[in-house]
Design a binder for these strands. Structure first.
Length: 582
DNA sequence: GCCGTTTTCGGCCCGACTGTTTTCAGTCG
């Protein structure tokens, strides 16, 4: 990626906007869809799509053909897409804002603009207040009211915030438990959708519930104490907004089709669409109600998802893989990976104590890790130049090594490793001397400062650390904070090649707001031959359990236990490190 | 606009809910 190139996120946004503009313009829906699927494909690429387009290789990405590549190239070289410029002459940006209001889509926004000249949400509000919309075909007083409410509720300018998966899962489990309690015996509520697929963030929570009286479940759902208001509710589906502001969609059904319903509502949309298109070619039609043949005879109902997939000629696909990233072919061919699970992990190799910025002692962390079933735990407090007022000087680290060794003597049932999370300085050097590092059992090297350097400089800095024989793993390799801070610039291809060469592990950091490496990057790294550690980066006892989120990212990256070093017994782990390789 | 065991053209999942309608269009997932 050259300096100044648009990022994949920039390109994806631009393609989405062209799609939205074409939709306003009345283009056939499949063309509109092509822009949005192309945008998603760009978002999921591990390589710089600007660079790929320059090399004429962007068409290798699924959903990108010659036309989209040409537009990506124009954006890369000239900063704009000619088609977008042309469309914007007909459709002002304010009209796009109108389409983003809930309940308003392209057709209504177009109607408001062409009939009444409404070109912004402010003008729309005025028209609704003056009851000027109700005279349009297909619009009435209730829609005016709904528009005013939507404008009233809108916070900021990008509507509803996405929330971290960890928070969404907690909310989903709370709602599911409340719904089961409200409905009584025989009703089963199960979180589905992106929460179940363990994506990084979720826009809303999807849930299914099955029981003898589906309509009664929907009614009970809308009346839960957790619910602020129902946005829609019918016999078979409802959408509510919780007091916390999170939206929850529910689909209900009878127990006999629990598998169909769960498969449908777990998604993703891309997975389901691709799965159904394939099924149609074989004369089968798949929906949440069941599977039926071409001649519309009876519906086949399935109580489990495994049966649904089997009926379609596929192995069971774990929810984390259902993103239309090759899992359908693999399920058909019997080549799905055996994914790593939390139970495979034998230890945690990145944790903090009160020696730096953690909140618990060595003994407390050890006890908590032992309770989780860990066989080993590395204590890796921040190093000398951490710079947050809680650095560990070389002398303090020597003392800390002694303390860990003493604790290890004292505490039975878990092996404690004396380690450190060492800073990678801007010049690529580490901030402890090698003879001190050599006394440690485990060394994580991370970047915590000077994020703004060029991709070339940051990559050289990272390669220096990877090349250091005493570095066992690179912590949170891209430095991103989900929704808060983008990754620093890095030539990941070079980083992965180097890590594969030296045997230095790359971390999948399990903190729910890091998940770093991301699933996309981790999958690319794995294909380059990299091996990983999944660490909690816990700063207190409770967050040791965050490992589940690192495991989720690893699973979404198609990783098996064989790619994860801390799935190994301690002796084998030690033997696998660069320093053991000589 | 993309794609190919229908292969360079013709087809591209499936259904719920709302508000507006007297049978359906628009939106959403």
């Amino acid at each position: 990626m050259a300096e100044g190139d648009p990022t994949n996120a920039d390109i994806a946004r631009a393609l989405d906007e062209v799609g939205d503009l074409y939709e306003l313009d009345g283009a056939v829906s499949h063309r509109v869809l092509a822009y949005h699927t192309g945008a998603q494909s760009v978002r999921e690429s591990s390589a710089s799509v600007a660079q790929l387009a320059r090399e004429g290789r962007a068409t290798e990405l699924p959903g990108i053909g010659a036309t989209l590549q040409e537009k990506i190239l124009a954006l890369t070289e000239n900063g704009e897409i000619p088609a977008a410029v042309e469309l914007h002459k007909r459709w002002p940006a304010g009209v796009l804002d109108v389409t983003r209001l809930p309940g308003i889509g392209a057709k209504r926004a177009r109607l408001f603009y062409t009939e009444l000249g409404i070109a912004s949400t402010d003008e729309l509000r005025a028209a609704a207040e003056n009851q000027a919309l109700r005279h349009l075909k297909g619009v009435g007083p209730k829609m005016e009211e709904a528009i005013l409410q939507a404008l009233e509720r809108r916070t900021g300018d990008d509507g509803r915030e996405r929330i971290l998966a960890s928070r969404a899962l907690a909310i989903a489990e709370e709602v599911a438990a409340a719904l089961e309690a409200a409905c009584g015996k025989g009703v089963r509520a199960t979180p589905a959708g992106s929460v179940r697929r363990r994506t990084e963030t979720v826009a809303d929570i999807d849930m299914i519930a099955t029981g003898p009286d589906p309509a009664a479940i929907t009614r009970a759902f809308c009346e839960l104490d957790l619910v602020e208001r129902a946005e829609s509710s019918g016999e078979l589906a409802a959408r509510v907004v919780l007091h916390s502001g999170t939206a929850v969609d529910l689909r209900v059904g009878d127990e006999a089709r629990h598998g169909n319903l769960l498969q449908h509502f777990t998604g993703s949309a891309a997975h389901n669409t691709a799965l159904r298109e394939r099924a149609v070619k074989e004369g089968l039609h798949v929906s949440e109600y069941g599977i039926r043949g071409d001649r519309a005879d009876r519906l086949e109902l399935f109580a489990t998802e495994a049966e649904v997939y089997r009926r379609l000629g596929m192995d069971y696909i774990e929810p984390e893989l259902r993103e239309n990233r090759g899992e359908l072919d693999a399920a058909r061919e019997g080549t799905l990976p055996a994914l790593v699970s939390l139970a495979d992990l034998r230890g945690d190799l990145h944790t903090h104590t009160t020696a730096s910025d953690g909140q618990a002692s060595i003994a407390e962390m050890a006890a908590a890790a032992k309770a989780l079933g860990h066989e080993y735990l590395a204590i890796t407090d921040h190093s000398a130049t951490h710079g947050f007022g809680n650095d560990v000087s070389p002398e303090q680290l020597e003392r800390q090594i002694e303390l860990v060794r003493e604790a290890n003597e004292r505490i039975e049932g878990i092996e404690l490793l004396a380690g450190s999370e060492v800073n990678i300085l801007p010049d690529g050097k580490l901030d402890y001397a090698d003879d001190l590092l050599a006394r440690l059992d485990w060394v994580v090297a991370s970047i915590h400062t000077a994020f703004k350097a060029s991709a070339r400089a940051m990559t050289d800095r990272m390669l220096a650390a990877i090349g250091h024989p005493l570095v066992d793993a690179i912590g949170h390799p891209t430095g991103r904070l989900i929704g808060k801070r983008p990754p620093y610039e890095l030539e990941l291809g070079r980083v992965f090649a180097a890590a594969a060469e030296t045997g230095t592990a790359l971390e999948i950091n399990s903190s729910p707001n890091r998940r770093d490496l991301s699933e996309i990057d981790a999958r690319a790294a794995s294909q380059a031959g990299v091996r990983f550690v999944i660490d909690s980066d816990a700063h207190r006892e409770a967050t040791l359990a965050n490992l589940q989120w690192g495991v989720a990212t690893a699973r979404r990256a198609w990783l098996g236990a064989d790619a994860i070093l801390n799935a190994l017994p301690l002796d084998a782990l030690r033997a696998s490190r660069p320093r053991a390789r000589g």
